[in-house]
């Protein structure tokens, strides 16, 4: 990749990150979900699951980590649509090497943002929830590769979704299927207690596998009994997430190029006119 793309992309990513953590509205977003999840965890801390061997809170904490990582997909999608609407993408197109640098910048700012969000949640959570393998370096290593692979699987798909939606308003349509996907993914309640067809469906999406990967990292080995097939299934995790990653990485450049090709001053003005009409 070109040197300018890396330099400019890095500069974009760092600037956007700084903006995101020095701005009231964004800071609220960074803290809202982690704090809400901490409250959920706090309320769950004494609820036991099944025959009382595990606290539900302990099972849920790693799942929440996985879910938050998967949400990078939604963030990416929303940012892309917003940037198309306000002309940031068109500006990138009018600049030499602008579009690839824009993408590099987005990937940096979104993924570092996610890692910070995870820390905002995880660090206080460790004080609420006992029984996690926080002392083991192997646990952190697993957490690391699951997170990286998870981002590679979800960010390109997010970019594809962002290119498909033409306005920030229509982005709202995405919320419902995402909520449904999270609901069945075994994040808040072990997937093995759900009907089998739901289990099958859950295993299609990356959220389930990110949750499973995080549980395999942080939970003691004995907790494996609540999982499908009583196994952590690392191989399958890598497999499914890789398929999502490949699909995303193949589709994203095609869809993005198609979208960028259609951008021009008049298409942007037209979109704005439509948006204003809806308001008026």
């Amino acid at each position: 990749m070109n040197k300018t793309v890396m330099r400019a992309g890095w500069s974009r990513g760092v600037t956007e990150l700084r903006q995101s953590f020095t701005n009231g509205g964004d800071l609220f977003n960074h803290f809202f979900w982690p704090v809400l999840m901490l409250v959920v965890l706090f309320l769950m801390r004494d609820v036991s699951f099944g025959d009382g061997e595990f606290e539900l809170g302990t099972l849920v904490l790693p799942g929440i980590l996985g879910m938050n990582a998967a949400m990078a997909m939604v963030t990416m999608s929303q940012l892309l649509t917003a940037d198309r609407e306000d002309g940031t993408l068109l500006r990138a197109k009018a600049t030499p090497h602008g579009t690839p640098a824009y993408l590099v910048g987005k990937i940096i700012s979104v993924s570092v943002g996610v890692v910070v969000d995870l820390a905002i949640f995880l660090i206080p959570a460790l004080f609420i929830i006992p029984g996690l393998r926080v002392g083991s370096s192997e646990a952190w290593l697993t957490l690391g590769w699951v997170l990286v692979l998870g981002l590679v699987a979800t960010l390109p798909i997010g970019a594809v979704l962002g290119s498909l939606f033409s306005s920030t308003r229509s982005q709202g349509l995405l919320t419902l299927p995402i909520m449904a996907m999270i609901g069945i993914s075994g994040i808040f309640y072990p997937v093995t207690s759900m009907p089998e067809w739901v289990q099958g469906l859950a295993q299609v999406f990356p959220v389930y596998w990110l949750g499973l990967g995080m549980r395999s990292a942080l939970l003691p080995d004995s907790a494996v009994i609540v999982e499908i097939g009583d196994a952590w299934r690392h191989l399958e995790t890598v497999g499914v997430l890789s398929v999502w990653a490949v699909v995303g990485l193949v589709l994203a450049p095609i869809v993005l190029r198609r979208m960028a090709r259609r951008e021009s001053g008049s298409t942007m003005a037209e979109r704005r006119e439509k948006a204003l009409q809806r308001v008026g």
Partner: peptide, 16 residues
Amino acid sequence: RARVGVVLQSWRDHGR
């Protein structure tokens, strides 16, 4: 691209 400058009718980008 590097030799051409473009100023469109209305830009609203990079507001932050």
